[in-house]
C-alpha cells in the first residue's frame, strides 16, 4: 500500500513536471475543406509530440534573447492571435522599440513570405528575424545553440525530438516550426456559417457586413485565408521618424516602395493596433483611412485610386462582420499554452 501511494505520488509529480498533455492525435495538421494546398511541406519536418513540445518550450523561453529577457511569446500572446496587443511598435531587449507592429501568427503553413516586408522566405527560418534583430532579441543563432547546450534538460529534449542530443541551429528552427505551424484558425463564427454548422448563425448586420466586405475588401483580403499574400501600398503617409519603405528594402525595386504585406483579417478584432506601424487603434480608424485619408502615389494599390465610398452604417456593419472572424477555439487552445515542463 505504501509503495502504491509512493508510486502514485511519483507518477503525479512526473505528470506535472513533464506535462503529458500532448497526444499524437493533438498534433494532426488540418487542411480545412476548400482551402488551398499549404505552402509549407510538412513531410520534410514531420510533427511529433516531442518536437511540438520542444518547439513550445523554446517559444516561451527568454533564453533565446541576448539578455534572457525576451521570448517569442513576449510579443506574440495567444489571446491576441499571437500578436503584441496594445503595442503599436513591439519592443524587445533593454526596452528598445522596434519599428514595426508584430504580426499575428496563425495559418502559417499557407504563408509564402514572412514579415511585413516578406524578407523571409520560409517558415523554418522566420525566427531568425526576431532572434537577431538588435531591438528584438539581439542574439545570434550560434549563441542560442551554445546557451541551450548549457541548460539542463534541453539536450534530452532534442534527443527525443530529433534522435540527436547535439543541439543544432537546424533543430532549434525545425522544432519551433513544428509548434507554430500548428497554430491553425478555422473555427470562427464565419467558418461555422460557411460550413452551415450550429453557432454559425449570422445576424442581418453581420451578413450585410459580409456583403460589403466582399464588394470592397475581398480583392486583397480574400476568403478563406483573408489575405492574398501580396504586398500593397494602402495609401498610408510615410512616417517621417521611421522612414519605413517596406518591401523595397528587400527587393531594392522602387516599384515596391511603401508596400507591406496584406495581413490576414482572421481574429482581427483581437489584434489591435493595426497597420505595419500600429498607427490605428480601432477598426473604425482603419476604415476611415480607406475612405478619407488615402495618400496618392505611384505605387498605390489600384483599388484605392478611386475613392472607396462607405457610409458610417456600412463601416459599422463591416466591423460587425470582422468580429465573426474571431476564433475562440484557437485563442484559448490549451495546446499552445506555456507548460511547466
Amino acid at each position: 500500500m505504501k509503495y502504491l501511494v509512493t508510486a502514485c505520488i511519483g507518477a503525479l509529480i512526473l505528470y506535472c513536471s513533464f506535462g503529458f498533455d500532448i497526444k499524437p492525435e493533438d498534433i494532426r495538421f488540418v487542411r480545412p475543406d476548400g482551402w488551398p494546398k499549404p505552402v509549407y511541406d510538412l513531410s520534410k519536418n514531420k510533427i511529433t509530440v516531442d518536437g511540438f513540445k520542444l518547439g513550445r518550450k523554446l517559444f516561451f523561453d527568454p533564453i533565446l534573447s541576448r539578455d534572457g529577457s525576451t521570448s517569442c511569446a513576449s510579443c506574440h500572446t495567444q489571446w491576441s492571435a499571437f500578436t503584441h496587443v496594445d503595442h503599436g511598435l513591439s519592443h524587445g531587449i533593454n526596452g528598445l522599440k522596434g519599428k514595426r507592429n508584430s504580426l499575428t501568427l496563425f495559418n502559417l503553413a499557407w504563408n509564402k513570405a514572412f514579415m511585413w516586408d516578406g524578407g523571409i522566405n520560409h517558415l523554418e527560418v522566420q525566427p531568425l528575424g526576431p532572434i537577431t534583430n538588435p531591438v528584438e532579441m539581439g542574439n545570434t543563432l550560434e549563441n542560442v545553440v551554445k546557451k541551450l547546450d548549457t541548460v539542463k534538460g534541453y539536450r534530452a529534449r532534442f534527443y527525443l525530438a530529433f534522435g540527436d542530443s547535439a543541439i543544432t541551429g537546424q533543430h532549434v528552427l525545425k522544432a519551433l516550426a513544428q509548434f507554430t505551424v500548428m497554430f491553425e484558425s478555422f473555427n470562427s463564427k464565419y467558418d461555422k456559417y460557411t460550413r452551415h454548422e450550429p453557432g454559425g448563425e449570422m445576424t442581418e448586420q453581420e451578413l450585410n457586413g459580409l456583403a460589403l466586405f466582399r464588394k470592397n475588401c475581398e480583392s486583397c483580403h480574400n476568403e478563406p485565408l483573408f489575405t492574398n499574400y501580396s504586398f500593397q501600398n494602402v495609401g498610408l503617409s510615410l512616417d517621417t521618424e521611421l522612414k519605413d519603405y517596406g518591401r523595397m528594402a528587400i527587393t531594392q525595386d522602387p516599384r515596391d516602395s511603401l508596400k507591406f504585406k496584406v495581413p490576414s483579417l482572421r481574429n482581427v478584432a483581437m489584434s489591435y493596433p493595426y497597420m505595419h506601424d500600429g498607427r490605428f487603434r480601432t477598426l473604425m480608424q482603419v476604415l476611415d483611412h480607406y475612405t478619407n485619408t488615402i495618400v496618392q502615389g505611384p505605387t498605390l494599390a489600384k483599388e484605392f485610386r478611386k475613392p472607396m465610398i462607405l457610409s458610417p452604417q456600412d463601416k459599422k456593419d463591416i466591423i460587425e462582420f470582422l468580429k465573426t472572424l474571431t476564433d475562440k477555439d484557437f485563442l484559448f487552445d490549451m495546446r499552445f499554452r506555456e507548460q511547466r515542463e
Binding site: 523571409i120 523554418e124 528575424g129 545570434t140 545553440v145 543544432t168 541551429g169 537546424q170 528552427l173
Partner: peptide, 24 residues
C-alpha cells in the same frame, strides 16, 4: 538550398553565414 528552410550540417543557419532579415 536558399529557399528550403532550415538546413543542416555546414548549411546550418548557425554557421554565421546566413542572413536573417532577408533570407539567404
Amino acid at each position: 538550398d536558399n529557399t528550403s528552410g532550415a538546413n543542416g550540417g555546414d548549411l546550418d543557419p548557425a554557421m554565421g553565414m546566413y542572413w536573417a532579415w532577408n533570407t539567404g
